[in-house]
Design a protein around this nucleic acid. Sequence first.
DNA 1: GAGAGTCAGTTGGATTTCACAACTGACTTC
DNA 2: GAAGTCAGTTGTGAAATCCAACTGACTCTC
Lengths: 147, 147
Amino acid sequence: MAGTARICSITNALAVVGERWSILALREIFFGQRRFDQIVAGTGASRDILATRLRTLVEAGVVTKELYEEHPPRYEYVLSESGEQIAPILLALMEWGNRYVTEGAPPTVFRHSCGAELHAETVCGHCRAPIRPGDSTVVRLGEVTPA
Amino acid sequence: MAGTARICSITNALAVVGERWSILALREIFFGQRRFDQIVAGTGASRDILATRLRTLVEAGVVTKELYEEHPPRYEYVLSESGEQIAPILLALMEWGNRYVTEGAPPTVFRHSCGAELHAETVCGHCRAPIRPGDSTVVRLGEVTPA
DNA sequence: GAGAGTCAGTTGGATTTCACAACTGACTTC
DNA sequence: GAAGTCAGTTGTGAAATCCAACTGACTCTC
């Protein structure tokens, strides 16, 4: 680090869900893949780091472990309330990836409860208009503080 | 890696903008901090990795370098079209961080062009309703493929 | 009831990346 | 001409990652 950093909720969010394998693990759980081996296969993470990432996600309260088999005791990973609320992050990443990185048709498709194919859009919570480049102005930036 | 991984636009997006210091650099540029030393100070990244991150972002076309001084030649970093479109990702991270990690008031505040304080919401592009946990169903998941 | 299979991790060792501080180079300002 | 600014680069030690193989607790099959 360079001695200073900005106080910002983006930094704070990344500290919890910002690691590569953490986000991918959350994606798999969001996709309904709840078990360790499924998450390994879906993310491509090595078992050891995935185990530590899941542990920190559980400690952070983003994910909970639920018993699905008694003998031997086995747990599956379920999104908590805060975990469910990462959907906007995942969907924003997916939309961006679809548009600017992935070639061809989107590999993953969701349907919204309204019946339409889901394409997430980000809107202003007040006026409900889509957010476009240049229509947001900074009122206050988090301070840049030493250490 | 574990030999397999899912084909998914989230993975693809993360390959381009998923590194910790990459997202934070994009945040700083989004916040209007366009110069190397400003980005160093705002992110807290060490100069060497930040330099390589910015280089890969430029190569990926997410950011461009624009000359702002001739003698000596100095460049500042500006979001390209695809770079501007990471706003939903940044705003989703910020909202989540505000809600679940940051203690106290949000450190960073934006105003939307409608006049209200900006709080991003993610909606279904078709019916415009906010996306809630459980109202999206999987139509197709990207394949899990070897290596 | 012995051997194979399933599942969720853990362990050990090589490799890669990262962090930090100091340095270069091209200039401008005092 | 000495000091300052700005954008990086370099070198080195510390830390994180990757991979494959292993453990442990069971169940299922022959």
